[in-house]
């Protein structure tokens, strides 16, 4: 019989994985609900979706995966005792998170200027709830990345980077569902 359980095989802290799985389930349920409600008015959802900035959102995907790359490299560098490089990578990852939020903020401001709000159409209710909840996670992630850049123990960086990769993973699924499947 093996001495290690399957749980021990998970990299990093178990509680971080509990958080990651919980978040994926919450966002997953939201996206399934979105697609379910879409069935009541497919044409209306497609029309509403045409008001979104696909290019900006696609650019944000590149921003987040690049930010995730820097966070992953930061852990690698910290484990190799390259503290300065790790800190810079974490700060870079956080700055890209800010870029994501600025682009998202511009998108929201544009919607507001067009008079599009929560009540305009059920599509926009889900759009604001799901992308807004995700943006709140990005904001939290930026704070966490800066925190672990300051308190740069390898375990802290690993936990912070895992949170950030979860935010990245959610966006990878959220982007096609909200912006592309019309």
């Amino acid at each position: 019989m093996s001495d290690t359980s399957l749980i021990d095989e998970l990299p990093g802290e178990l509680l971080m994985w509990v958080l990651i799985i919980s978040e994926l389930l919450v966002f997953g349920a939201g996206m399934i609900a979105f697609m379910g409600v879409r069935l009541t008015d497919p044409a209306g959802f497609a029309e509403a979706q045409s008001h979104l900035h696909r290019t900006g959102a696609a650019f944000n995907t590149a921003v987040l995966v690049t930010s995730g790359y820097l966070a992953a490299q930061a852990l690698h560098w910290r484990q190799a005792a390259r503290r300065g490089a790790a800190r810079l990578a974490l700060i870079g990852a956080a700055l890209l998170g800010v870029v994501f939020l600025i682009i998202k903020g511009t998108e929201y401001a544009d919607k507001a200027a067009q008079g599009i709000g929560f009540e305009t159409h059920p599509f926009f209710l889900f759009y604001y709830l799901l992308t807004g909840f995700h943006a709140a996670h990005v904001l939290a992630g930026v704070g966490i990345l800066l925190l672990v850049a300051w308190r740069d123990d390898a375990r802290n960086i690993e936990a912070g980077a895992q949170f950030w990769h979860m935010v990245d993973l959610v966006w990878i699924m959220l982007f096609p569902v909200i912006y592309l499947l019309g």
Binding site: E9, L10, P11, L169, I172, P176
Partner: peptide
């Protein structure tokens, strides 16, 4: 689009989240 999103998700899980070291997960 969904197949490409799945491929991206798997890469994030395997490499960024380091699950490549734990094939069952």
């Amino acid at each position: 689009i969904l197949i490409l999103a799945l491929a991206k998700s798997r890469i994030i899980l395997a490499q960024y989240l380091d699950l490549a070291t734990s094939p069952p997960w």
